[in-house]
Design a protein around this nucleic acid. Structure first.
Lengths: 217, 217
DNA sequence: TGCTCAAACTAGCGGCGTAAGTTTTCATCC
DNA sequence: GGATGAAAACTTACGCCGCTAGTTTGAGCA
C-alpha cells in the first residue's frame, strides 16, 4: 500500500493506542509491531511519525502528565495547593500504573512535565519558601507520589500464605493483595497528611513572620 | 566445551556480575548474552543456574535489598528506627539506581524484601500502632524511599537553558543537574523529616496514652 | 502538467530470550 | 572399580524485537 488518500496514522492516534495497550498488557508487552497492528498498519510505518520508540513513550508519558491539575497553586495557600496537586498527580499516575516506571525517570524534555514543575515551584516561591527549599519540597512530593504509583504496595505481596510462614509479623500479608485499592489509598493519604503536616510546621518555624505579608498568599 | 572440571559459573558470580553491568550500563543494556560474555561463557549457559532472566533480576534486586539495615527496630523508638531504616534503605537503592524500577515493583517472593517488611511492620506494631496503621506507615515510607531512589530528581532536568525559556520559574533549572547529589539528598532529608514529624504528631494524638506502657518501646 | 513531499509498503540486519539436544566431567552407589 | 545419572558447559535454532533502507504512489502546489 502506498500513501493512502486519508492518512491512517497521526501522532495522537499512535499515542492513545499505545497508552491503551500499555494499560492492558504492560509496558514490556508494547512493541512497535504490536502497536502498529493495533493501528491496522505495518511496524515501520510508525517511524514516519516518531523517530524512535522512546519518543512514542515520551509522548505517552506526557499525555498522562498533562491530565494533572496544577490550578490549585493559584487558588489556595501553598499547603492546600500541594495537597490537591499531589492527589491529582497520584490519580493521574494510578490510572496508568504501567507507564509510571518510564515516566518517573524525570521530566526530561516533556512539556507537560516541565509545565507542572514550573507551577509547583512557582507556587512555593510565591508563598515565601526560599528557592532552595521550594526545590526540595517539590522533589520530596514528587518522590512520594511517584513511589506511591510505581507499583501497588499491596499487590506486591503474593497471595500465597505459605510464603509468609517464616515471617512472624506477616501472617496476614497474603490478604493485602485483596484489599489493594484501600490499602494503597489509605497509605497514600496517611503519608501525604504527615508530610504536609511536617512541612507546615517547618514553614511556621522558618518562613512565617519573616516575610512581608505581600509575599504570602 | 563440555562440562569443565571446575564450574565456571555460580549463582553468586552471575548476580554480582549482573549488578555490575546494570550499574555501569543500565537495566535495558543487560542481556543474557552480554552478561554471559562478561562471565566468559556463552549465553544459554546461564540457564543452568537460573530458569529465566527475571529470576536473575530478582536475585540481583534481593542482593541489594539484603544490604538494608533494619536492626534499628530493636534498638530505638519507632520514629528513630523508621528514620534509620529509611536512610539505610535509600542509601542501598541510591548505590544502584538502575535496578530500582525493577526492585520497586514489590517484594514478590524475594526473601530479603520479605524480611525487611517483617521487621518494619513488627517494629511498628510493637510500638503500639494499630496493625492497619502500621501497614500504611510502612507503605508510605516505602513509597517515599522508592520514589527518591527511582530517578534522580535533579538529573531529570536537562542541562539546556533554552529548554526552560517558556517557564518563568524554571530559569535556573538547567543548573540542577550539576548539583544532583546535594539536591537529591537535601530533598530526601527534608521530606523524611517532615514525614516523620507528621507521623509523630499522629502518634501523640491517637496512640500514646491509650496503650499500656508495656506495649511501647 | 509536472515536482516534491508524505505516508504507507517490503525486505532485511543484528540482537534478544530461551528451548532443545549434545558432550563431557563429576559424584555416587552396587 | 565400573556403571549410572546429574551437572554444566556447548551449538543450533526459533520467533520476536527495534530499526534502516529503499520503493511506491497519492496529495498539494508551481
Amino acid at each position: 500500500m502506498p500513501r493512502p488518500r486519508q492518512a491512517l496514522l497521526s501522532r495522537e492516534r499512535i499515542v492513545t493506542t499505545a497508552l491503551a495497550l500499555i494499560d492492558a498488557d504492560g509496558l514490556a508487552a508494547l512493541s512497535t509491531r504490536r502497536l502498529a497492528a493495533a493501528l491496522g498498519v505495518q511496524g515501520p510505518s510508525l517511524y514516519n511519525h516518531f523517530a524512535t520508540k522512546d519518543e512514542i513513550l515520551d509522548a505517552v508519558a506526557d499525555s498522562v502528565t498533562a491530565t494533572v491539575d496544577v490550578s490549585a497553586f493559584g487558588r489556595y495557600d501553598w499547603c492546600e495547593a500541594l495537597r490537591r496537586w499531589a492527589v491529582s498527580y497520584r490519580a493521574a499516575l494510578a490510572a496508568h500504573p504501567n507507564i509510571v516506571p518510564y515516566l518517573a525517570q524525570g521530566p526530561g524534555r516533556r512539556p507537560a512535565a516541565l509545565a507542572m514543575a514550573d507551577a509547583v515551584y512557582g507556587g512555593l516561591v510565591r508563598a515565601g519558601w526560599p528557592p532552595a527549599r521550594a526545590t526540595h519540597i517539590g522533589a520530596a512530593l514528587r518522590y512520594y507520589v511517584a513511589g506511591s504509583a510505581l507499583g501497588s504496595f499491596a499487590r506486591g505481596f503474593v497471595e500465597d500464605p505459605a510464603l509468609y510462614a517464616a515471617h512472624p509479623h506477616l501472617s496476614q500479608a497474603h490478604r493485602l493483595a485483596g484489599h489493594q485499592r484501600s490499602v494503597d489509598e489509605g497509605a497514600f493519604v496517611l503519608g501525604l497528611d504527615a508530610l504536609l503536616h511536617g512541612l507546615a510546621a517547618e514553614y511556621e518555624r522558618t518562613v512565617a513572620g519573616l516575610e512581608p505579608a505581600t509575599a504570602r498568599e
